[in-house]
């Protein structure tokens, strides 16, 4: 006996009730449960839908779907990191390395020659963190709208919008920046320190650009590549 469309919807609801928020994972689990139920019915046709469902769900173990969700999160998190790294690498190969080096030397030159270098540095920090907060705030608003309108959630989309494991790393420069600006005379008067600081500012700038601009602008492509069903759902 085949499952009806209504029973399939019931299975989607069941996965949601068991903490599977993401549509991509729900779909895979729904098909699995549906197959298992249909096979079980061939042997025990008298069992009700709920009885078979509970029997099949118990096979997932005491943590239910948690293991599956966690492993998927981890796998896609790694995929995201690899994506960021691939983009990052291009800034160190021809022709983009010219941009990276030019920016570093330019910043170095400005900080070295200007007598207001400590103010310039503070201004850079304000822009850096202002930009991050602005982007985080923007995403929070989008997420709220998504939640209110009950849109389907895709795990990889969420990772892209929350910057995977980088969201914590983005605030790391805060410590370094405050160190540098509070000991400006030490860090900004020595050429080696000055060059390192310039390089670091450029590197974090590149990372921000990748996380906030490049990857989100290609989100659609990445999602279609990760989820063939994304195309079907968003026609």
């Amino acid at each position: 006996m085949k499952l009806t469309a209504q029973q399939i919807d019931q299975l989607y609801l069941f996965t949601r009730q068991h903490y599977v928020e993401y549509y991509d994972l729900q779909t895979e689990l729904v098909d699995h449960l549906a197959n298992a139920i249909e096979t079980e019915w061939e042997q025990n046709p008298k069992l009700t839908f709920d009885e078979v469902l509970n029997k099949e769900f118990s096979k997932f173990g005491v943590f239910g779907f948690m293991d599956v969700v966690e492993s998927r999160q981890m796998a896609l998190g790694k995929k995201y990191n690899r994506l960021v790294f691939q983009h990052f690498k291009t800034f160190f190969s021809v022709p983009k390395i010219l941009f990276t080096l030019t920016m570093t030397f330019l910043l170095f030159k400005i900080l070295k020659t200007s007598i207001y270098n400590d103010y310039i540095f503070i201004a850079i920090c304000i822009i850096y963190f202002g930009f991050i907060f602005h982007e985080f705030y923007k995403n929070k608003k989008i997420k709220k709208v998504q939640k209110e309108t009950n849109q389907k959630k895709w795990l990889f989309e969420e990772i892209i919008n929350q910057y995977g494991s980088f969201s914590g790393a983005l605030t790391f420069p805060f410590y370094i920046f405050t160190q540098v600006s509070s000991h400006a005379e030490r860090y900004l008067s020595n050429d080696y320190w000055l060059f390192s600081v310039s390089l670091m500012v450029v590197l974090f700038g590149i990372l921000n650009y990748i996380l906030f601009k490049i990857i989100p602008s290609k989100a659609e492509v990445h999602l279609k590549q990760t989820y063939p069903e994304y195309k079907l759902e968003n026609l």
């Binding site: 599956v68 492993s71 063939p228």
Partner: peptide, 24 residues
């Protein structure tokens, strides 16, 4: 499923979606 997802993320597996009966 964790094994499948890991292999997929490593680029060893690819995925395809088909509509079968009334599900994907």
């Amino acid at each position: 499923y964790p094994a499948l997802h890991k292999l997929e993320a490593e680029g060893l597996l690819d995925v395809e979606i088909e509509k079968v009966d009334n599900r994907m």
